[in-house]
Simulated assay, not measured.
Amino acid sequence: MKKWLRKWRLATVIAVLALVLSGCGEPFLSALKPAGEVAKQQYDLILFSLGIMTLVVIVVVVLFAIVLVRFRRKNNSEIPKQVEGSHTLEIIWTVIPIIIILVLAVPTVAATFSQGDVSAMDKKDKDGNRENLVVNVRAHLYWWEFEYEDLGILTSQDLVIPTDQKVYFNVESADIKHSFWIPPLGGKLDANPENVNKFFLSVDQDKADDVNNIFYGKCAELCGPSHAYMDFKVKAIPQDEFDQWVADMQNAEEPVPTSELAKKGEEVFNDSCISCHAVTPSNDTPPQARTAPNLADFGNRETVAGILEHNEESLKEWIKDPEQFKPGNKMTGAYPDLKDDELDALAAYLMELKVGNE
């Protein structure tokens, strides 16, 4: 008995801890800390639904308790009046669920249609230019590509967007099914290889300030052995800073190494890497030919391969053996083994790939 009681207490403690920890989360990664219009609307729906269902549970528990107490069997008690086939009860327990479903359905359907309205995506001004920012998102095993088609900019792994406005997305996949998800900004959207899904997100500037303008995005669809490591970063910045970033990217030129080591690294890159990777933010290459991440502005990124610290040591470890970090990635075995001095030079060159930070 005591042994069973100890196990019951331990199970209770674990259950309580799990419940408490389930509500924890960093603001840059938690869906429970909304940072934009879409996420806030979805969060409010969650709370609304949770409130309705909590009320239902309370009513059911109270009725259950009343029945247990009032109609419990007693010694020599008479059998209570039977109510099988009561039309009144049948109407009550049929109508109440219908009302609950309608109460839940109306705001949910309204929000779904509101968030699915992407008609403004193609709205143009008198000069024929889109009035809203549109980003083409393309998922790969296991990285993300972001194309600002109207701006002539192509990047990967770091998504840069302005705050306090709607940003529209065309989402697709280059290989298998993925799912585009930035938890604090809104629900996930499937990235399919055969069709394009569309939606919009927005970021509140004050929420971006709370996380130093960096949010984290993930793949939310099991897509292979490195699904858990298919991350990307979202830089949400004010409009004037975004305009400056756009100007810097549009005016970017071929990178020029500034040291002898970086110059040697450029030679290594041209011999081993340039057939797959680009180093300028141009979107001239057709989508079908983009087999590896664009490395423009690599020196200013937040991470290496989306998951490692952004420094030369991590970069060299990644280049040397990408399979140990992202099993099943397409970079493994795609280039010849490099000597240590070649790795040093290549890392120095890549870390100098910066746009707008001279």
Rank of each mutant, 00 (worst) to 15 (best):
M1C: 10
W4T: 06
R6D: 02
L10Y: 15
I14S: 06
V16P: 01
L19Q: 03
L19D: 09
V20M: 05
A39P: 04
L47W: 08
M53P: 00
V61R: 13
L63R: 14
A65C: 01
I66F: 11
V69P: 00
R70T: 03
R72I: 00
N75L: 15
E78S: 14
E84K: 12
S86Y: 14
E90D: 07
I91F: 13
I92D: 03
I98D: 01
I100C: 00
I101A: 13
L104N: 08
A111D: 05
D125W: 14
K126S: 12
G128R: 00
V135P: 04
Y142T: 09
F146A: 08
D150F: 06
T155N: 04
K166F: 10
K166M: 06
A174M: 14
W181M: 08
K188R: 05
N192Y: 13
F199L: 15
F200W: 10
L201C: 03
A208Y: 01
Y216N: 12
Y216H: 04
V234F: 02
D240K: 12
A247I: 06
M249K: 08
A252H: 04
P255V: 06
P255W: 05
E266A: 07
N270W: 09
S272A: 11
H277G: 02
V279T: 15
T280S: 13
P287R: 05
Q288A: 09
R290L: 08
L295M: 12
G299H: 02
L308D: 01
L315S: 00
N329C: 15
T332E: 08
D337E: 09
K339P: 02
D340A: 12
E342M: 01
D344P: 06
A345L: 01
